[in-house]
Design a binder for these strands. Structure first.
Lengths: 213, 213
DNA sequence: GTATCTTTGTTATTTTCATAACACTTTAAT
DNA sequence: ATTAAAGTGTTATGAAAATAACAAAGATAC
């Protein structure tokens, strides 16, 4: 498994492969060819083989891929096995929803705390956890070796809070705030800009409408 | 504004341009060059000029771009001015959060209804709206000319519900269900697969960790 | 066991996307 | 007015990504 430098385009496709492989697994399918998978997923077989080969090739010529093995390998690449400690910063609508909705534990993320600057929320029970005030943040992050922060706070405070969290030792952000974080290069940021996504939808609707004229 | 065939790569960058231009606007900046914008946004000036030129070019040589004008043009391209009618299907954690959190109205989306198959939720007040049972769906969509459905239901029901909604006249989906919808080509789908995003984060953390060894 | 078929891994080609280069236009300075 | 500087639109080049092609490996059938 040589990890030279895989493009984010490839990485972005891995979770989808994993999803389909999981379904095959659940249906007790033992083997699958790139051809079959390509028809199922609506991508080219060539791309599938290229993608897998970035990591060394998981198949057997003349046979195909063993579903279980392939699934496990991709899961490993994605780091699903590794354990990380995660907090949610911002216990508003979205923060609460993610706390309840995402199954962090099942994905190897230990969800250990949720914080909000609005002290009216302090102590509110969410899932099996109590909202903490921001004044607890520094100690909590340091003591619990938190490496991931989910940012569900307004953009006005996101940049500053992210900088603070980096200072406390956080290594990665799942950023829902609608702003670009200002963090060092060795910090990982995955942005989820929902309003950007909605605008793309808007564009594509408009385009389709124009096409049908 | 000739609309030959703009790549989704370009479209995907437009919302970010819009965001930065909005900030410049708010700071009463009147003009901006591709060079300045490139430094601000951390992209190449060349890419900015190329992107804008897909739509005909909005600047003046030797001067740059007028911030207000450019902002409005990009907003127009993204179809922010158009009005659409939108419902949320699935009033669970995520559905409720989006109802409260997204400012649909400000983006030209008329949010007109929210539905859930769990009848215990029927009548629950969310924002200024009451959760409706799925049995209302068909009539509501047809009578209110709903063109967008936000899907925040489990993947087990998403595919079927989407097919039904297409039958009722829905033209676009903002899909949060972790599954690929099966809809005709003329239907627009924008997927937000949060767990995929989380896996990408996971991968990149693992990668950074390995680099630092 | 041999021959045929399947299907991968990998190399070659094509297409798409990003960057660089530059001619031409406008602005600004003297 | 003339010249220099700034900065776009656009063309040319380079890089990256996707697809196609194919040889080698293994599976299957007889």
């Amino acid at each position: 498994m040589d990890d030279k430098n895989i493009s984010q385009a490839v990485i972005g496709r891995l979770p989808r492969y994993l999803r389909y492989l999981g379904e095959l697994k659940d249906s007790n399918v033992e083997r699958v060819s790139s051809q079959e998978l390509s028809e199922l997923m609506n991508v080219t077989a060539s791309q599938i083989r290229q993608d897998f080969n970035n990591f060394g090739g998981f198949g057997q010529q003349g046979y195909g891929y063993k579903v279980n093995f392939l699934y496990d390998e991709i899961a490993k690449i994605l780091g699903i096995n590794k354990t990380h400690h995660l907090i949610i910063v911002g216990a508003g609508n979205l923060g609460q929803a993610l706390a309840n909705y995402m199954n962090f534990e099942r994905r190897g993320f230990h969800f250990t705390g949720i914080f909000d600057s609005n002290e009216a929320l302090t102590g509110k029970k969410i899932r099996d956890m109590y909202v903490q005030p921001m004044s607890n943040l520094e100690n909590f992050v340091k003591e619990n070796a938190i490496d991931i922060a989910v940012l569900t706070i307004p953009k006005t405070s996101a940049v500053k809070v992210a900088e603070q969290l980096v200072g406390y030792g956080v290594k990665a952000f799942w950023n829902f705030a609608h702003v670009d974080l200002n963090v060092p290069d060795d910090i990982v940021v995955e942005n989820v800009h929902l309003s950007d996504s909605l605008m793309k939808l808007s564009y594509n609707i408009t385009r389709k409408e124009q096409e049908n004229e």
